[in-house]
Write a protein that binds this DNA or RNA. Structure first.
Lengths: 158, 158
DNA sequence: GTTGAAAAGTGCTGCGA
DNA sequence: TCGCAGCACTTTTCAAC
């Protein structure tokens, strides 16, 4: 048998398939099959299994935000008031569509968000009119990204 | 004529195509064509144009990191020593494959990184043995994500 | 669980409007 | 510039190993 991965449901072949498709999801199954020396049908079965298990959540088109008019990317440290629950805040923050990531974190802040806006005016609007008005949020700290140097997926070492 | 977007090269139809494919890149062109009431060929032409313009950078498979043994996600604030250049640090940080995002930011830190590791031991290894040994990096501050509540693409309002 | 091939559907290209 | 139709390719399914 092959060396098993951390998760017993997933073997080395599955990981190799993921590794290839995580970089470019447009690569055809037939080509993956050739690379890994199995049949196209096997790739299909493995992919279906991983989709059913929820390992594969979907496929995204990677778009350059700046080229479609979204020029400002910022991270936001969010302080939550005592007595306010994270859950309630999340429910409200989900509705703010400029927030593309939100984490509950250890450290100085309660939460950590990533926002993408059209310009600095748009960012100010979102901060003042949307985020700061959410109940339970006492204070935020903004870190504007001047340059995105790395943007990639996890590198699965096989 | 249609209402133009911020970028004059891109019109409303292009944005609608992007909007659909950003959520799920597996949706066939024919289905998009039906939704937007144009022919499949038109979708193809628009996609090619946007790929040539660099608006579309590719396609990613979305994988649940926890289900393939990457359990720990953390953000990292990085202080850079005076005299050290951002460029030199980036060149070294690029080689650390656990770093999936790196930004040059305003605010308390010089840089901001997102790292994905297998477990807390792995995180400690990356911090001590890789990141802290990079020349020019004086200090880092770690924020571990206990829960990822939001993870999505920009919502293009059309 | 894997294979190989047949069936169904999608993407691509050139001609016409 | 867009739409239609034919061809090439990929995905999907299934019987057999």
């Amino acid at each position: 048998m092959e060396k098993k991965s951390v998760n017993s449901e997933i073997d080395n072949l599955d990981m190799q398939i993921l590794s290839i498709l995580m970089e470019d999801a447009t690569i055809p199954y037939t080509e993956i099959a050739k690379k890994l020396i199995v049949s196209g049908g096997t790739i299909h079965v493995r992919m279906k299994k991983m989709q059913d298990l929820g390992i594969i959540k979907g496929s995204n088109l990677v778009v350059d935000p700046q080229k479609i008019g979204y020029d400002v990317c910022a991270y936001l440290g969010i302080y939550l008031e005592k007595g306010s629950t994270y859950k309630d805040a999340v429910a409200k923050l989900v509705k703010i569509k400029e927030i593309v990531e939100l984490h509950y974190t250890t450290g100085a802040w309660s939460m950590f968000a990533k926002i993408i806006c059209r310009d600095t005016n748009h960012l100010r609007e979102v901060l003042n009119e949307n985020i700061q008005t959410v109940e339970g949020i006492s204070r935020t700290e903004t870190f504007i990204s001047l340059e995105e140097s790395i943007k990639r997926q996890i590198n699965l070492d096989l």
